[in-house]
Design a protein around this nucleic acid. Structure first.
Lengths: 236, 236
DNA sequence: TGGCTTTTGTACGCTCCCGTACAGCCGCCG
DNA sequence: CGGCGGCTGTACGGGAGCGTACAAAAGCCA
């Protein structure tokens, strides 16, 4: 299962699926943002003022518990968008969303141009199918973290990021990864060492490189394939 | 946090939120099913022929891994429906859905009457908000099972079922509950004993009674409240 | 170049839950 | 009313990951 081909100009896949005229109509309202790791795109409960369509950036949706511990519930990259609630009838959701991997994203203002959000356009059915794909992703990764050991989940996470990023490497600390996976930093160190010793990845001080993608896939659990094929079925 | 008031006639809450005329238009296509525990409402990948709106029945969405192990990803009762994909643009999803607690449900044929699924009606925005609530539920319970000990999760599960069922008791074996929570049956026994000794629940041979709801809530983790308040915000 | 900060490696005891196994018990059905 | 099958209680060793702690190395900045 090869890494997905990047779109020309590293476009967002949802926007790229729009018919030309609809895309053109939206173009005037679009704004491009360079986003740095840690930038917060949405705080739980706060109204959203923009909808972000990542191009090379990758975002994380996380829940925060009362004791402060956090877990990632989903990854959003160029295959999707941040701001589904805007289409689902509210203007906020209960997760925090922030940038995980530096890159850029296209944004639209949150109360979208009427013609776009109403029926008849191509955007709405696209978003509906993306919603279902996201739902599957969240469910599958939830199940995954209950049933599969940390090194497999680690491999899965790296593959999913790799799919959403231009090259073969990106910046990432083990500390950060541990928060995404909901485990200790030390646990990530062990898992990553295994993958590194096997030659699947290489990393040094906050920077990681996917060296052998096929190997990494073999080290991951089935969940990577399940999620990916669901995305392909629904929005591929 | 008291148990939600049952609707008159134990109606499904989504259908009950429809304006009278829209409800009446659908009424002709409705069919009532008595559903027994174990009845399968949807197999992964298979096209859905009906959309089910549970009234007193409760259903579970589960993922099944390649090795056969299963985990519940969501519970659906009178607050929602089984068959969202029909509204999201496909006709199937990647989970299995089956009946968890005996009861009845109203069903509509899967390619819904056109006037209903198109825009302008009251149903579609309702479903959109339910979709978001379901998404939050799935995400929160995923995070929950990573971070919270089994007895708290057990209490949460019981509360969520209690909310969706007419009385204070329902039939449930520890074996079944263990599959829902993704743990060993023996682990459930220990967790349930704790709750029973505290006087929160009473059970005997496949039958459980909620004896002290408030106590049970105190034994549950925050996730119950989080999920419930998100439902109230979105479709309350 | 040298020092400081950030990141990574590793260790140790501990807890929760697993896998497995078996015993006891309830309640239905013959 | 007795047996059988399904449900529940309990036990024991094992393993994965936790909390904590400290050391080493890599890069940044002065």
């Amino acid at each position: 299962m090869a890494k997905p081909e990047p779109l020309p100009g590293f476009e967002n896949r949802v926007l790229a699926a729009l018919p030309q005229d609809e895309y053109d109509r939206l173009k005037n309202s679009m704004q491009v943002f360079q986003l740095q790791r840690g930038t917060i795109l949405h705080e739980p409960g706060r109204p959203m003022s923009r909808v972000y369509f990542p191009r090379t950036a990758v975002a994380s949706m996380v829940t925060t518990m009362e004791d402060g511990s956090t877990v990632e519930v989903a990854t959003v990259g160029n295959e999707g968008l941040v701001g589904l609630p805007v289409f689902l009838g509210t203007d906020s959701m209960s997760f925090q969303v922030f940038i995980q991997i530096n890159g850029d994203a296209v944004a639209l203002p949150a109360p979208l141009p009427r013609e776009t959000s109403s029926n008849g356009g191509a955007l709405r059915p696209l978003l509906a199918r993306y919603t279902q794909a996201l739902l599957s992703q969240i469910a599958q990764s939830g199940a995954c973290s209950m049933l599969h050991p940390i090194d497999q989940r680690c491999a899965r996470w790296l593959l999913m990021s790799h799919d959403r990023v231009p090259g073969d490497d990106f910046s990432l600390t083990q500390e950060f990864l541990s928060q995404m996976l909901g485990v200790r930093r030390a646990t990530v160190t062990t898992a990553a060492s295994i993958l590194q010793r096997a030659g699947y990845i290489r990393y040094r001080r906050g920077h990681i490189q996917i060296a052998d993608r096929e190997g990494l896939e073999s080290a991951s659990c089935e969940c990577y394939r399940v999620i990916r094929s669901e995305y392909e079925r629904l929005i591929g």
